[in-house]
Write a protein that binds this DNA or RNA. Structure first.
Lengths: 263, 263
DNA sequence: AAGTGGTCTAGACCACAAC
DNA sequence: TTGTGGTCTAGACCACTTG
């Protein structure tokens, strides 16, 4: 190993560490290794979809046993930052995988079969650069007035307009994002963010409410004014808990529902 | 170890196993151990809140190394079936813990602080035994007409009626459940189910929709008829994926929201 | 001091994939 | 055949809790 507070011996190598503070915030070796791997992921040393070095290589690099690297990677895999494939290696997770096509979208057709309705239709209504309002700035950890990109679009499933949503993105990280780009890219928007802007969304939080559609919303979703809609506010984070996208969606739930698993 | 398909050696004990089928559905030793522990949990050998034997004891009992038992327990802990406490032991998880008071309830006040509003008020409107309708029977894996218990109640937070919900429970497992019992018990209803009926809910699935309040619902929740409400249908399972409760809730989301974390 | 879970190591072997 | 992740073991030591 190298730095950080710790105390492990058994190896005879890190035994001479400083051990400065009284409560040096003990963190196990594998957590420190996890942190180092995380740094490399964040720095883009390995890009989404690529393999990372084998456990043996990483063990040699960090001067720890394979088991310790293994435990670090186990946690990264549990957080969906990395995907293990036996016999092949460990890969940086990406939103561009064919399997779970929309990892953050919990709206599913009542039939339960998301494949049956074919690919989602996308219509971008708006894509413009503007200055962050107070609430958008707070959510994205910016200052009021900082540049942001706002996108408004409608998603259509099986021919039915089902989702109306607004996205707000930090202007600096998403320079040059255009309506064409939003509309053209096949596959998840988050996959495009990875490819075009090097921004990978790692986790998100959602606040869900029931609301009544106003006239404009009703028109865009082809429902009656006052119809109940699901309001889903999503804040997505990159590495290190940096918020990178605020999304406010209105979901029709007459033929779809929001599915959640508790444990 | 004892039975099951596998092939592990390194121990010299299980080497003489049958190895009957062509593809004997290989499952690693720790998975088999996990299954055995699961059986003991299900059989009630250790009750919610109690300690289970130490890793060393279990290792001796199953004739495997501590590390193998450890990995089995790791998975059980990840599934919230069991809770580890360093220096004390491993405990059977329970809904009666003071910490996370309502493990399955994702509705939180907009302030974010669930403690600030004090304990939930409960009013049981109905508690009766009846015969399962077709849809209730299907959800609970019963036959139409089988006995079920239905409970209707209103939950109040900070003086405001916020949740109106119906519960359906298999009549056989919940013989003798009364309105008094539902109303009297302090703490989570699921904790009462553990204590009084030996039924422990392990996981659940929810389907969420936005709906408009009808006249009766509006009156009970003190909102205007037609107000948007969150419809939350929850199916809860005990061990071995046996469904044991269907719950249909209507949530007011004017001062609360449904909070979800994605990863 | 004794017991429990938590960490770390080292080495062996298995299952899977690719060359 | 080689290299990857996956499993299993055995033993040492650390951190936390309790008597």
């Amino acid at each position: 190993m190298a730095t950080s507070p710790s105390s492990h011996s058994a190896d005879g190598a890190g035994t001479a560490d400083a051990q400065a503070q009284a409560t040096p915030a003990f963190s196990p070796l594998y957590q420190q290794i996890k942190g180092l791997i995380l740094q490399s992921l964040q720095a883009g040393e390995w890009k989404p979809g690529e393999v990372i070095p084998s456990e043996m290589d990483l063990a040699a690099r960090f001067r720890v046993s394979q088991g310790t690297v293994r435990k670090a990677i186990d946690e990264l895999a549990a957080e969906n930052l990395v995907v293990r494939r036996q016999g092949k290696g460990t890969f940086v997770a990406t939103h561009a995988e064919q399997h779970v096509r929309y990892r953050f979208l919990k709206l599913v057709p009542d039939s339960g079969d998301r494949d049956s309705e074919g690919p989602a239709g996308r219509e971008v209504l708006e894509c413009r650069r503007l200055r962050a309002s107070a609430d958008v700035a707070r959510a994205l950890a910016l200052r009021t007035g900082d540049p942001v990109v706002q996108v408004r679009r409608v998603l259509t499933f099986g021919g039915v307009p089902t989702i109306l949503e607004d996205l707000w993105l930090p202007g600096n990280a998403f320079k040059g994002l255009s309506a064409d780009q939003m509309a053209a890219y096949q596959g998840p928007t988050y996959a495009m963010f990875e490819l075009e802007f090097g921004v990978r969304m790692v986790r998100a939080e959602e606040k869900i409410r029931s609301v009544a559609a106003d006239a404009a919303q009703a028109a865009l979703l082809a429902v009656a004014e006052g119809s109940p809609l699901l309001s889903v506010e999503r804040l997505s984070y990159t590495y290190s808990d940096v918020p990178m996208e605020l999304r406010r969606g209105l979901y029709r739930t007459d033929t779809h529902h929001y599915r959640n698993e508790l444990s």
